[in-house]
Design a binder for these strands. Structure first.
Length: 298
DNA sequence: CACCATGTTCCTTG
DNA sequence: CCAAGGAACATGGT
């Protein structure tokens, strides 16, 4: 679930339900996700703290907390990795199998579960500082984008995954944005023409914006464990809508299906060890000159 | 058993 | 030193 739109939708749902709540206790089931913060540091810092706000930077969640005694605000940084989820559940409900961390909020529990444990919940904010501009910020200007791309020999698809270029685009929306812009994922970043840079900047924004819009209207599964609509937020989809997002994607995971724009079969290719989906019929651009790997002599 | 998976961070190679 | 590529991380679904 976690690219910028999913994180944004999650933040919008979490912010009102977490605001002003006090963290009474912290249960750490998988200390590794706190890295480099220790379990003890987290507990000492968070116990008794008030959640002043929840926001987002790129794919990171930012929890602004206020210390129990000092009242000095500080930030707790979260990242969902590939499979992370965060939601509130009744205190009495059993913790899910892959719970990484859970906050005791008194009348409810805030759970961070992550099947693959690639996520993070930490006091270390250095990753945030390395992020590029937010896609919707004016700092993500055509000039900035063009200049940054001009310096890279990487394929444009791989470059879009670089969080220091622009924050929040992941593997799914990189393919989607390039499809909408009609640009081949294999085109070297530095080879994009000015008008392609302009178009791509626009489609990055529109694709992300559209996804946020869809996500905001997805019916959420309230009180999934108990069937009660008690105001506790559960991040997930109600049954029957599990493919809601996927059905709105134009090329991602659609290898072999006809392109919605020109009918040519969607292709899958691997770049930097990750899948890229694109339409060879209407996504143009010269591809990056193939590097010839010299034969290795044992 | 094989391969695939929404992400980031190391380590190696060039 | 830098850029690029790949493996590792950990678990589950086809």
């Amino acid at each position: 679930m976690p690219e910028l739109p999913e994180v944004e939708v999650l933040v919008r749902h979490l912010a009102p339900v977490l605001a002003n709540r006090i963290i009474r206790d912290v249960e750490v089931r998988r200390a590794k996700i706190l890295r480099p913060t220790s379990e003890r540091q987290i507990r000492d810092r968070l116990r008794g703290a008030r959640i002043a706000g929840v926001s987002r930077r790129g794919k990171y969640l930012l929890f602004t907390l206020e210390g129990a005694r000092t009242k000095a605000p500080f930030q707790l940084v979260g990242h969902l990795g590939m499979t992370g989820r965060m939601y509130l559940q009744p205190s009495a409900a059993p913790l899910p199998k892959h719970t990484a961390v859970a906050f005791d909020l008194g009348d409810a529990r805030f759970v961070f579960e992550d099947t693959r444990y690639f996520g993070r919940l930490t006091l270390d904010t250095t990753a945030i500082a390395a992020l590029g501009p937010e896609p919707f910020d004016e700092a993500f200007s055509v000039d900035y984008f063009a200049t940054a791309l001009r310096r890279s020999a990487q394929s444009i698809k791989v470059k879009l995954l670089d969080q220091s270029l622009v924050a929040g685009v992941g593997n799914i929306y990189a393919s989607e944005a390039l499809f909408c812009a009609g640009i081949s994922p294999r085109l070297a970043a530095r080879r994009l023409a000015r008008e392609q840079v302009e178009r791509l900047r626009e489609t990055i924004r529109s694709v992300l914006d559209e996804a946020i819009g869809l996500g905001s209207t997805v019916p959420l599964n309230w009180g999934a464990e108990t069937g009660e609509r008690n105001g506790l937020f559960y991040y997930g989809l109600t049954s029957g809508t599990s493919r809601y997002y996927e059905e709105r994607l134009r090329v991602y995971d659609r290898a072999g299906e006809p392109c919605v724009r020109c009918g040519v079969s969607i292709q899958r290719l691997v770049q930097a060890a990750r899948s890229t989906y694109y339409c060879p019929g209407c996504q143009t651009g010269r591809r990056v000159t193939a590097k010839i790997k010299p034969a290795k002599i044992s």
